[in-house]
Design a protein around this nucleic acid. Structure first.
Lengths: 102, 102
DNA sequence: CCACCAATATCGGTTATCCGATAAGAAAAC
DNA sequence: GTTTTCTTATCGGATAACCGATATTGGTGG
């Protein structure tokens, strides 16, 4: 199975994290991402990412009324853990910065 | 002035961080990066990054014998701080993961 | 039913990141 | 002075992240 984000770009990883926290719709994701990045990813950005994550078997959709909620699969949960590990390993020396930012 | 890594790819940012910690040669950088990423960036990767950082005025070279040491400029120090801020803002919810990783 | 509207999806194209292969430079070994 | 070796540098190309514009879908209100 291919690896999620070889850490080349953050979006897939971030989406995985957000969804892992709580199932969300595409629009909710866009809003959450805007808070963090400053700019809201366009629909043409977020939906291909979701599609790709789904094709990898890491997320699935649950229709809840009008919106469509995306949530992690079991494999997605595992992939998120792995990816977080890789991320920490790459940025291991940023712990202090995060602490300082409280 | 253009911004270092809009957070699209980590290499420039990482290099800036490493050099900010201690002036390093290209080869030292490659070794340090290998420790964190698992794979060593090729010369064809690292030197263009260094060139680009230099062109932006964020690093300068200091010849010290046989190797060439790269170090931050004042503007580079500022850019590193800014970039770190952006990074933290994007990944604000990863503080716990870093703590857990001790 | 029909017109709207928000959410989802697709497409083409731009840009940047990264790599492999290869060259150039400079010190050291001989 | 020539060869070796290590570091630095360049070039072309592949990949993928991202965006703007545009369609499509499915409830909702009239």
């Amino acid at each position: 199975m291919r690896r999620c984000c070889d850490m080349k770009g953050f979006l897939s990883f971030q989406v995985l994290r957000l969804i892992g926290n709580k199932p969300m719709s595409g629009e909710e994701l866009r809003c959450e991402l805007e808070k963090r990045r400053g700019s809201k990813p366009s629909p043409g950005t977020i939906y291909p990412v979701l599609k790709s994550l789904a094709e990898n078997g890491w997320i699935k959709t649950r229709d809840s009324g009008k919106e469509k909620k995306y949530q992690l699969t079991l494999a997605g949960r595992k992939e998120l853990n792995d990816a977080t590990g890789r991320f920490i390993s790459i940025f291991c020396d940023m712990g202090e910065d995060f602490k300082r930012a409280k």
